[in-house]
Simulated assay, not measured.
Amino acid sequence: MKKVLLLLANGFEAYEASVFTDVLGWNEYEGDGTTQIVTCGMHKQLKSTWGFTVIPEIQVNTVDVSNYVALAIPGGFEEAGFYQDAYHEEFLSLIRQFDEAGKYIATICVGALPVGKSGVLTRRKGTTYHLNNQLRQKQLASYGVDIVNQPVVVDGNIITSSCPATALDVAFILLERLTSVENCQRVKSLMGFQDIE
């Protein structure tokens, strides 16, 4: 089984997290059956940006990176405390461990910011939330990231994206990388995103 660690910071956006659970979950049951998602956080209970409460399966300090093939990080809101967890050294260290092991790291929106802060995107291409005077893109650039103004940017093992609207695209790219183009197309079709041929 290919396990994907869904790393949640307090204040995460529930929609951005749900695309990973849904796409990889559909693959587990209806695709090639090889993926499984495991939720992880810094606390025993987490609140999303809009107050949705989640109990992660494991804590950050118990993760054995060798058990996972990829890391998925949804974004969140500063007002909901997202950066308190996302910029914590334990959170950043886990990102570094996944990158050092050459594993995929898939982020949505400002989920790219802790990846940038961790140092693993330095001198690499990436993107993040692009509206509101490009504040978040400027923050990502301050970590030495080469900002690309595209909805989704893939640089080696790291996938970044510009906003919540790209969330499903990121999840499907990750599924394709972990399985195959054909399997990803099948899951998309079964989920109703394209006609089954």
Rank of each mutant, 00 (worst) to 15 (best):
residue 116 G to T: 15
residue 120 V to M: 08
residue 59 Q to D: 07
residue 197 E to Y: 08
residue 23 V to F: 03
residue 113 L to A: 12
residue 109 C to M: 02
residue 131 L to W: 12
residue 46 L to E: 01
residue 134 Q to L: 09
residue 116 G to R: 15
residue 131 L to M: 10
residue 190 L to T: 11
residue 50 W to V: 08
residue 124 R to D: 02
residue 31 G to F: 04
residue 126 G to Q: 02
residue 58 I to F: 09
residue 82 F to P: 01
residue 37 I to P: 14
residue 31 G to C: 07
residue 20 F to A: 15
residue 104 Y to C: 00
residue 112 A to W: 13
residue 101 A to T: 05
residue 35 T to K: 05
residue 2 K to V: 09
residue 78 E to F: 05
residue 7 L to K: 01
residue 195 D to E: 12
residue 74 P to N: 00
residue 45 Q to K: 10
residue 142 S to P: 03
residue 105 I to P: 00
residue 117 K to A: 08
residue 111 G to Q: 10
residue 25 G to R: 08
residue 103 K to T: 05
residue 56 P to H: 12
residue 169 D to H: 14
residue 57 E to L: 10
residue 51 G to Q: 03
residue 67 N to W: 06
residue 32 D to I: 15
residue 175 L to A: 13
residue 109 C to A: 12
residue 107 T to C: 06
residue 76 G to Q: 01
residue 181 V to G: 11
residue 126 G to L: 02
residue 102 G to T: 04
residue 114 P to W: 13
residue 72 A to M: 14
residue 73 I to E: 01
residue 50 W to T: 05
residue 37 I to H: 13
residue 53 T to K: 05
residue 169 D to N: 12
residue 194 Q to S: 10
residue 158 I to S: 01
residue 93 S to K: 09
residue 107 T to M: 07
residue 59 Q to E: 10
residue 134 Q to P: 07
residue 61 N to E: 12
residue 168 L to W: 04
residue 161 S to A: 14
residue 144 G to R: 08
residue 134 Q to G: 15
residue 98 F to I: 02
residue 126 G to K: 05
residue 142 S to V: 08
residue 78 E to W: 02
residue 181 V to Q: 11
residue 10 N to D: 03
residue 6 L to Y: 09
residue 120 V to P: 11
residue 1 M to T: 07
residue 10 N to T: 02
residue 113 L to E: 14
residue 183 N to P: 13
residue 150 Q to E: 14
residue 131 L to I: 04
residue 42 M to Y: 09
residue 60 V to G: 07
residue 8 L to A: 02
residue 187 V to N: 14
